[in-house]
Nucleic acid binder design. Sequence first.
DNA 1: TATTGTTATACTCTATAACTATA
DNA 2: TATAGTTATAGAGTATAACAATA
Lengths: 152, 152
Amino acid sequence: MTPSPDPPAGLERLLGTDLTAEPVFLMARAASTGSSAANKQLAELDLKVRHYSVLALACGEERLTQRELSQFLVLDPSQIVAILDELERRGAVERRTDPRDRRSKVIAPTPAGRNLYAQAKALVGVSTSESLSPLSDEERQELSRLLRKVAF
Amino acid sequence: MTPSPDPPAGLERLLGTDLTAEPVFLMARAASTGSSAANKQLAELDLKVRHYSVLALACGEERLTQRELSQFLVLDPSQIVAILDELERRGAVERRTDPRDRRSKVIAPTPAGRNLYAQAKALVGVSTSESLSPLSDEERQELSRLLRKVAF
DNA sequence: TATTGTTATACTCTATAACTATA
DNA sequence: TATAGTTATAGAGTATAACAATA
């Protein structure tokens, strides 16, 4: 089993080591605990962060093709297939052949999908609040701002 | 193959979507690109971030057991075994039975291991500079500070 | 009886290549 | 000839359980 997530239980003496000064390590650790927490919340809806991400984009203003989802989420096209298979099986999204390029499929949410997304978004909000609880509101916004600059 | 890493190539119109406001998504994406960049640099030494992390802790002041490495890195004990097998095979670390508890093994770096770590640390520094290039020095420090609060 | 390290196994995630249908 | 989606497969990465040595 994976060890206890957050407090290294008596290993606070390691917090001043070289490793804890490495952004790549801190980022990986923060992302890992954050994703775990989000997946735990989303399990109630039998979703994972990857499905949530695709569903969120599907429910947005833009109608995207699978190729575009793949590019934006930095996931292989074959992985998008698997995620959409699952979401479509559950009736949350539809694949529609693009009339302008019949090779492409545009992803659209169903009403049930929009409803699922609303619930999922609330659950992710809960886990985000938990994960960022050590930060003030200003710090949360600043963290998001900095991450956005790094991520794109 | 995994799509191009950073610029979503014409998908800037998605930067204002709900998803890009989710810290869990931003964090995962930043961590993913950061780890990829670091692994790419470390490939020159035939190392990955996970080996680098263990090596870094092994080269620190504290002498840690495998169990402690497992707890601090949030990796399963069996994964620590695999990482140490590799590092020991390369002569970078040694497993020493703890005289006070002969079940435990304390990990110690070899001179070659310290040398390897120095090289690896420099390479990670290069990738960190690249990954954080959109940020000013002040922003980098602030990001590290915030991540440290979230990660521990 | 409990714990450390180890091994074995399975399951998820990711990467790669080949196929189809369209362009 | 090239591209979008799909399928199949293999490789990492991770999770789980059982075992030997030690406590």
